[in-house]
Design a protein around this nucleic acid. Structure first.
Lengths: 242, 242
DNA sequence: CGTTCTTTTGACTTCAATCAATGAGAGTGG
DNA sequence: CCACTCTCATTGATTGAAGTCAAAAGAACG
């Protein structure tokens, strides 16, 4: 029972080791299930949280809106992720968390989480490690935003998503579903929607990939990852799945 | 004795509370002191670490070099920071840590740190929190790199540094020392050195600030922080010092 | 005091933004 | 089942912010 927690177990085993007794502690976490509609925000910038959100199915993303109206998408999330785990220790959100597509989630009360982590320090270390891997993703994205042009950034995002999606069986044979619009891609890449469109066309005309109707097909992984200067080690997978 | 650890105590109290017994645990951490020359790397991309580095005096920065030769400076660090604390759980570095200026540091063995955190879970939470605040800084910088132009990014960096430096008594009355070259600034801001120079001139000609001989003087905080869309809450200071 | 690093300036180029319009799909309701 | 609407994708023309290249001027340092 409570098969919902399996995605979390898998995620934790992707970035570290989880002993049998620790697994029990994780399995015993009380979950409150919910279904989110596309665009729903489960945490808003400035809000004070008392729970975190485990993504079970579908996509989520974190975003930051600036006073001038511009928006940066900070990360995309796949099942097994706890995108707002940081709120366990930083109660007040400094960004927002929203559903990219319809999705299934499980809320975990911070009080319950705290109790569990106190009981099993090894699990606490794993959760800590998870937030550190999260930060590692930000570092790479900062680097790409600061140094790479539109093609490089886009290629990098598509490479990262392929590797992460494979680890949760949502990608195989160089293809995956990615339910975002070009405008959302633009918010993630720090470029305009028009330029997203042109960059996609450029990558496609060079035979690197195709992205149509929310389906990504990578035609030439070697040249794409080369263009992206992609190196999956920042994902800190315990066993590399790339 | 061991007054070196005071900067760390202060830092921890800046982002949370530290009880008397927890303070003792922190004070008992074995430190190995060292002096670094400008440019020295205490941790390099790919390296496996068994210690972290507490900055006691001077400046450090973290950076990521890409295969094509471009470099992104990810963060600047001031006394009290442990810039590579994440290596406690992510042994293998995914970026580098270097001395911006001559500086004094204290190395803390991960084994000692782990022992201390096991003894005092409240301290573990504080250190975890510190890494989460670190990640919050990355999120804001990602946002500025993706959405703001050269002026906005530069203004934001200068605002952030003023607030952080004030909390460690290294800035007052709208001025502080900042020992970087315009080329290093360029690596942090994701623009070219030439454009750094022109942007500095522009900000100066508008009466917002002056930056000469490594000294920053902010002439108009209100307009500068407005241009930066700066909101210090992402620093997650327990008591706001801005 | 000369050598090196850093800052500054000018001319030119380029990548991406902007503005504006058209086209294509998906879902809705008469 | 087809008009209608809405969102999303695409295209073209133009503008603008920042990059590039090259050189000179100014500081810093042994």
């Amino acid at each position: 029972m409570a098969k919902e927690v399996e995605v979390l177990i898998r995620r934790l085993r992707t970035i570290g080791t989880l002993g049998p007794e620790e697994e029990i502690v994780v399995r015993d976490l009380p979950l409150r299930l919910a279904t989110l509609a596309k665009g729903d925000e489960v945490a808003s910038d400035g809000e004070v949280m008392d729970q975190s959100c485990l993504l079970l199915a579908g996509w989520m993303h974190r975003l930051k809106d600036l006073p001038d109206g511009s928006r940066q998408i900070l990360s995309f999330h796949v099942p097994g992720d706890i995108p707002d785990l940081q709120s366990l220790h930083l109660k007040k959100m400094d960004h927002s968390l929203a559903a990219t597509s319809v999705c299934e989630v499980a809320f975990i009360k911070h009080a319950d989480l705290r109790r569990a982590l106190l009981k099993a320090p090894g699990v606490a270390d794993l959760f800590w490690r998870d937030t550190l891997v999260d930060a590692g993703g930000f570092r790479i994205w900062m680097t790409m935003l600061g140094q790479a042009n539109a093609e490089g950034r886009m290629a990098h995002l598509f490479c990262e998503l392929y590797v992460r999606l494979r680890s949760v069986d949502m990608a195989k044979e160089m293809r995956y579903q990615f339910p975002v619009t070009q405008t959302e891609l633009a918010h993630a890449l720090g470029i305009t929607p028009v330029h997203v469109n042109r960059t996609l066309q450029e990558l496609r005309s060079r035979g690197l990939l195709r992205f149509e109707h929310h389906e990504m097909i990578i035609h030439d992984w070697d040249r794409l990852s080369d263009l992206a200067q992609f190196d999956a080690s920042y994902l800190h997978y315990f066993v590399d799945v790339s």
